[in-house]
Design a protein around this nucleic acid. Structure first.
Lengths: 191, 191
DNA sequence: AAAAACTCTTGATATATATCAATGAATGTG
DNA sequence: CACATTCATTGATATATATCAAGAGTTTTT
């Protein structure tokens, strides 16, 4: 149940057994089924979720009620709305379960306790957020000013794993094109 | 010369006098003039820059040679290409001086020394990157799927300071529209 | 097994925005 | 001060992509 978490921590920092036990017991396991919501628009995000198994995605709804996918999270990834988590303000985002999942939930109090008590945990978190920032910046570069075809090519190059696990219309939303356009881009690809 | 840096640190963490001295002396001051380059495409980013005074911006060049603005940095902000800084690989970005500037430069060795030696510095960095991540995610939301007019409205709402200090064509690039379109959006606004 | 809901594809049309081009204003430079 | 750059505006046109609409194939639900 905690394999992915342990693996993720060990990839970036070294923990004593005692530190690991303290981390481990700060999380609460939670199973969720496809289509369930981890967070809904208007809620305050009070917890961080670590994905042990399965897949989640977050999105906002535009004025016409269309989903605007923000990001996906698979095994070994974190998911939350950090803005709401840190500010305590209601979120504009929904987090929905894409595949039946096993999550490890960490509430704010425990998160802060770990940051204080376990220095490698704070280091881990710095590195994780750093990496997420770099990836996100790359995404901004790919979102602005590219054609639909270029966006799709870059997705294939940079995040091929998404293609097998995520419905095409969510991919379309993620790269900021309509589902029809993505379908046509893919169509012209096969010729 | 170190006012902004001290202010930025104190906003997020508490440092002993000794820790502050250690931080301070790890930086190297550097003056730069408008149009000079802090980093050029193909270079490896080996330093973090903190802006004491002035303004910088980073951008990549698309296939047609047009600038694609990634971000701006004013007093109290950090600037670097983190991807290149952490991986040691050559950057695709240019960092150019927008207004004559006073920078504080921190090389990788000193950065890592501070992370090790000064716990509040690591905490500061975690928080800074966290905040940058939240801001960047907001930007992705604003970049994808909005009309030119909506993008401009959100920029006014969220980063009004940019408008006074940055030429309009760079703003246009930053929000991902052509300079002509931005000009027209602004024009229709004044009526 | 039938019905319902979801997903992808394909076609026709509309539209927002890029592109091309010219002009004038503002700014910097020898 | 003349000259060259840079910058913003405006018009005409082209084009990529959204939107609207229908149908076929899947998957899910009852």
């Amino acid at each position: 149940m905690y394999e992915q978490l342990k693996k993720s921590l060990q990839e970036h920092v070294t923990l004593s057994d005692k530190e690991w036990e303290l981390c481990k017991h700060s999380f609460r396991p939670k199973r969720m089924l496809k289509r369930q919501f981890l967070l809904q628009e208007g809620d305050v995000c009070r917890e961080l979720a670590f994905v042990e198994k399965g897949a989640l995605y977050s999105y906002s709804l535009d004025m016409s009620g269309n989903k605007r996918v923000i990001r996906f999270a698979f095994e070994g990834w974190w998911m939350a709305n950090l803005q709401s988590f840190f500010t305590g303000k209601p979120t504009r985002l929904n987090i929905e379960v894409l595949e039946d999942s096993e999550l490890l939930i960490l509430d704010r109090k425990n998160h802060e306790m770990l940051l204080e008590q376990v220095p490698p945990y704070e280091r881990y978190h710095r590195i994780i957020v750093q990496n997420a920032y770099v990836a996100l910046q790359r995404r901004v570069e790919n979102a602005l000013g590219l054609t639909a075809e270029e966006k799709y090519e870059r997705l294939i190059a940079e995040s091929p794993a998404f293609l097998n696990r995520v419905p095409q219309h969510l991919i379309a939303s993620y790269i900021g094109v309509s589902p029809e356009t993505l379908s046509r881009v893919r169509g012209s690809y096969n010729r």
